[in-house]
């Protein structure tokens, strides 16, 4: 009996041990440390760390307009990013589940931006916005291309939204394709025979049946856009004048540019709470709309 017990612990240690070790070192301990440091004035360099109570949080809520500016930017960006990536992703999937000859090629193309990291994509698009668009503007005379791209707050914002949609719609398309191809052909044909319009079929039959995919896609899109960092850094660096700074970039700058690690961790903790609440609410709402197929 005793040797069986030992062998149970031995196996547990062998199989689960490595995962637990790395998870503890990289997630659990830093998370707990972060909670502690957010109540201190740690600057990251000196060993001296003083407990300051709720000072950091008070500072964030009363005296940090830049943080709230970046928060508002992130919220606006998330709303647009989530809606647009899902719409584009869904409609690409909707048409790619029709019997098209070029289906596989198209799927490969639409997914491609996604495999390249946000940092390199941002740099590529920086060139397109600055040089490519101005050339296209000269050629076509369209005022859309002649706007001061990346030069002011509005164009900077829309530039990030555009690249984001270009980058992520293909990913959501793949999820929607998987879900749409599970919608039974008989049900769709029956609806067509009953005289339902395309829009009615989409709204009353397809939409409820693909709700699980909507839950996943919304969850992913919210998490990508809320945590966006690489694209932001390489495309606008938060400029001009911090007008396109996301929360993730604001936290990064607070810690590594201003050397206020304590304040940075306090913001990061607040960021976690906000992300967790939003994700929970979203999953609750869309889960309640799922139906049994």
């Amino acid at each position: 009996m005793r040797s069986r017990k030992l062998s149970h612990y031995g196996q547990q240690f062998f199989f689960v041990g490595p995962a637990v070790l790395f998870f503890t070192l990289v997630m659990i301990i830093p998370f707990l440390m972060g909670m502690y440091y957010s109540f201190t004035d740690w600057n990251g360099v000196s060993g001296e760390v003083t407990w300051v109570g709720f000072d950091n949080f008070a500072k964030i809520f009363s005296g940090d307009p830049d943080f709230w500016k970046s928060f508002w930017f992130t919220v606006r960006f998330t709303v647009l990013g989530v809606v647009l990536t899902n719409l584009v992703g869904f409609f690409l999937a909707y048409f790619l589940t029709k019997p098209l000859k070029s289906r596989n090629v198209l799927r490969t193309v639409f997914f491609m931006p996604n495999i390249i990291g946000g940092l390199l994509l941002g740099f590529i698009w920086q060139f397109i916005f600055i040089k490519g668009f101005s050339t296209l503007g000269d050629m076509t005379g369209w005022s859309f291309f002649q706007l001061p791209w990346l030069g002011d707050a509005t164009t900077g914002f829309w530039a990030i939204v555009m690249v984001f949609v270009w980058q992520y719609s293909g990913y959501l398309m793949v999820i929607y394709i998987a879900s749409l191809s599970n919608v039974s052909k008989e049900v769709l044909e029956a609806a067509e025979i009953d005289g339902a319009s395309h829009f009615q079929v989409l709204r009353s039959i397809i939409a409820p049946l693909i709700m699980p995919a909507v839950t996943v896609s919304l969850f992913l899109a919210i998490s990508w856009s809320f945590k966006m960092f690489d694209l932001n850094l390489s495309l606008t660096k938060g400029g001009p004048f911090k007008s396109t700074e996301s929360v993730a970039l604001n936290i990064y700058n607070e810690a590594f540019l201003n050397n206020r690690y304590g304040l940075g961790t306090a913001k990061a903790l607040l960021f976690f709470v906000i992300v967790a609440i939003i994700s929970l609410i979203q999953v609750r709402i869309t889960k309640s709309k799922e139906v049994e197929a």
Binding site: F23, L25, V26, M27, I28, I29, P30, F31, M33, G34, Y37, G44, F226, K227, F229, V247, A248, I251, Y252, A255, Y261, G264, T265, A268, L269, F271, F272, V275, A276, S279
Partner: peptide, 21 residues
Amino acid sequence: MLFVMSMVVPFQTIMIPVLKV
């Protein structure tokens, strides 16, 4: 449960202390 919960944590939240580790 801890693994699942940790997936919601943004990297920024643990970024600074993880460097200390």
